[in-house]
Design a protein around this nucleic acid. Sequence first.
RNA 1: GCCGCCGUAGCUCAGUGGUAGAGCGCACCCUUGGUAAGGGUGAGGUCGUGAGUUCGAUUCUCCCCGGCGGCACCA
Length: 639
Amino acid sequence: MFSITFPDGAKREFEVPVSGLDLVNGISKSLGKKTVAMVVDGALSDLADELSSDAAVKFVSREDPEALELIRHDCAHVMAEAVQELFPGTQVTIGPVIENGFYYDFARDEPFTPEDLPKIENRMRQIIKRNNPFTKEIWGRDEAKKHFATQGENYKIELIDAIPGDEDLKIYRQGDWLDLCRGPHMTSTTKIGSAFKLMSVAGAYWRGDSNNAMLSRIYATAWASDDDLKAYLHRLEEAERRDHRRLGREMDLFHFQEEGPGTVFWHPKGWNLFQSMISYMRRRQDAAGYVEVNTPQLLDRSLWEASGHWEKYHENMFITQTEDDRIFALKPMNCPGHVQIYKDGLKSYRDLPMKISEFGIVHRYEPSGALHGLMRVRAFTQDDAHIFCTEDQLTKEAVTVNDLILSIYKDFGFEDVVIRFSDRPEKRVGSDEVWDKAEAALRSAGEAAGVEFEYNPGDGAFYGPKLDYSLRDAIGREWQCGTLQADFILPERLDAFYIAPDGEKYRPVMLHRAMFGSLERFFGILTEHHAGHFPMWLAPLQIVVATITSDADDYAVQVRDACRAAGLRVEIDVRNEKINYKVREHSVAKVPAIMVTGKREMEEGTVNIRRLGSRDQVTLGIDEAIKMLVEEAIAPDKR
RNA sequence: GCCGCCGUAGCUCAGUGGUAGAGCGCACCCUUGGUAAGGGUGAGGUCGUGAGUUCGAUUCUCCCCGGCGGCACCA
């Protein structure tokens, strides 16, 4: 005797095991028709599963949120079946549900091409119409391996071998097709519906390891309704509209060209914004007691050997050789340079903590396939700093850095920050004892800062553990920006020390930290976050004074000069074009404010202001208008 | 780096085995127009680079370079 509890609190008692299907049909035929799966004690299950002990059961219809992952997963199976029907000899591997859809990885000699997708999609729709039920079978290991061996499904055999011995091997069948699968599934293929679309083909390594074979992956999206699918495709278009690479060109901020892969040509407007970011950060760092320095781009190989970069970071470095056969490397990091500044002159414990900052341009030879607009480049500017301190000071300094980072993100409109703690990587310098100490110190500093952080094992820098700061942009994507790293190793390797009160030499600890991380990347994130509508204090061009007729040209010059004198970034548009044309053009260029000047304004000594994103107009006296805009253009840290 | 796709005017893109076209932008002219594209005329291209096939290649094949979507790597 056992009892089933339903979401409304109702209970039913049973003597013998009962399947979910019988259970729901026992309640109502129409509910049974709608139900595609069930949730048993919080876990999604096949509706055909038998219940034999006390449980809380909830029936799931395909419109319920819980069903979405089933729709996607079922759809993945159907895609695999379609592929194997159309392309015999293709092996199936894994096909998980992901955000917005699913993918399936296939092994075959000839990878899929985009032209294959419509064919596969059509076949999928046929398979769905066949309305085959999904049925689950439990197979023995040998039986399963034998079956997949005869099918030539070697990857499935590998998967079976990876399943713990005490776990059941589940096989799901739809019509003649079957797959090894954890489940659960809906009752039949027709429940998948029609709101899916194959999106792209891509290569992907088996088990995510670049030493393994490259499989052919098909990405697809799937939703409960056509409206949801449409909305998703619309969101993709929106994301494309705010792509910083597109906006960078449209707004004349920067460009790339073939001769400089992964390196930016900054145009006047882009560079202006870039400098605004630097000015802001410089103010924040000055206030926080940093001293700014600048260190060489090229340094002799011997220094990189001493720091460990030559050995552990070589494949990422640009190396140069000169006529005299000396070998220099472009700096991939600023730390060794900063240690040289620290070391120039004896340091006392009274000098600590010493916070050395630099807007340092670093070059890293990134794999060609990793390059992506401003987000991933080969030459970038870090708002880098190294805090030299005693071990006793480490926690306090780390907490201060943490607070500063979060405060800065807030000023730029990012409140959603994810922090991750990474410990020792395989490729590292220093002894395990030192790593134990560094990891413990950084972890406790993070705890002292009172922030939540996730654990990211094995992803530390080669010289120390780190806390990484990722922020979420307006369309929900996560970008790694800031970092805070505890380093007990470079001071040792590069022989940095200070004289303590006892007159003896001691090693300082180094905290490496960056807040923007890469200014280039942060610029890209800002662009996409704001969709190019930069807030007034960052907008490279804040105002355009646009004339209606040439009678107002002189007046427009006066207005422009007054704005400029007030420190606003302003341009004038006295072209022989209609005001409609000018308004459109400057709106498309995302200028925050357009000051329209015509005969009327000239006579009244006013300007008519139209703000980006609004059709409203307001007419103000020049001084009043300038005062308003100047106020708006104040950087958040100066408010 | 790996898999796939792509590279034609400043931008977005058509097109063809017989040395190229549109829209926008640009220049000039007309127009002086009140809040998201007024009209006309014109300039502008070694069709990414190199090699091969061919009587002839922008078009077909291969190498390389660059970009895009992923994977791997990463700020």
